[in-house]
């Protein structure tokens, strides 16, 4: 059986909020290493991979592989019943038809308990190859969110060009064009505000802004985000957490 207690409901709330619009129904794969999720969106353009490592829970028990097929809108409704500072305990049997959630608030001795029905979800498991990317760009999450939001007003697509000097996001649309360049720099006092580019060769790829704007719903998970690019392979957008990550993969646009 699964029993996993997380100290702060807000962590789970933010993770689910980050992915629910992209993958409304998905399997949470639980085993002794933690709770993982991997799902493609309906159009097979984007993939979400999430991991909450066992050491992020206390206690964490899961002695065999359990797949929890969950509708994330249903889970969101139940998680709204938890306050951010509540502890959440997740429980499920070995062959579960429901997931039990207990929210505890130690301050006011309030305990609430919910069960949500699980679904059978037939999901392909995909092997994600370890990739040596040509460019990895780490930048402040809020900066990336702002760039995506700003450029999405002009165009459906953004070209991301990484050179050793920095990264340039540019777009063109019916009303005109625009670009934002971030030059590589290090902020000594606030390292999370730095922009870093690790580059083996220059890269220039085009992506759908609609998806990137969607990925930015994960912005509350981390102060920085890493974009990893190689020519002709999917973009990796990674939000690292203390005990896990949310990663998004996005297929590039191809010139006709």
């Amino acid at each position: 059986m699964l029993e996993a207690r997380i100290e702060q409901a807000s962590v789970l709330k933010r993770v689910i909020e980050a992915i629910k619009d992209l993958v409304p129904d998905c399997n949470f794969d639980c085993n002794d290493t933690g709770i993982a999720l991997q799902a493609m969106d309906n159009s097979h353009v984007a993939l979400v991979a999430m991991l909450l490592r066992a050491d992020g829970f206390s206690p964490y028990r899961c002695d065999r592989n359990i797949a929890l097929g969950i509708n994330l809108n249903s889970l969101t409704k139940v998680l709204r019943c938890a306050q951010n500072e509540d502890m959440i305990t997740l429980k499920a049997d070995d062959a579960p038809d429901s997931l039990n959630l207990v929210f505890e608030n130690t301050e006011n001795e309030r305990i609430s308990e919910y069960d949500i029905k699980l679904m059978d979800i037939d999901q392909e498991h995909l092997g994600i190859p370890d990739t040596e990317y040509s460019a990895s760009i780490t930048l402040p999450t809020a900066e990336f969110q702002r760039i995506c939001r700003d450029l999405s007003q002009l165009s459906e697509s953004v070209a991301i060009e990484a050179t050793k000097e920095g990264v340039k996001f540019s777009c063109s649309g019916d009303i005109g064009n625009g670009s934002v360049t971030l030059r590589t720099h290090q902020n000594v006092d606030k390292p999370e505000l730095s922009t870093k580019v690790d580059l083996t060769e220059p890269v220039n790829l085009t992506f759908s802004l609609k998806y990137l704007v969607n990925f930015c719903k994960a912005s509350s998970l981390s102060q920085t985000v890493t974009l990893s690019l190689s020519n002709e392979v999917p973009l990796l957008v990674e939000y690292k957490m203390d005990n896990g990550y949310v990663r998004f993969y996005l297929a590039p646009k191809i010139d006709e």
Binding site: H44, A251, E256
Partner: peptide
């Protein structure tokens, strides 16, 4: 304009 690619083919089904 550019055409949206898909992820099929990039990742192997296990």
């Amino acid at each position: 304009s550019a055409q949206q690619g898909r992820l099929d083919g990039f990742f192997k089904v296990l």
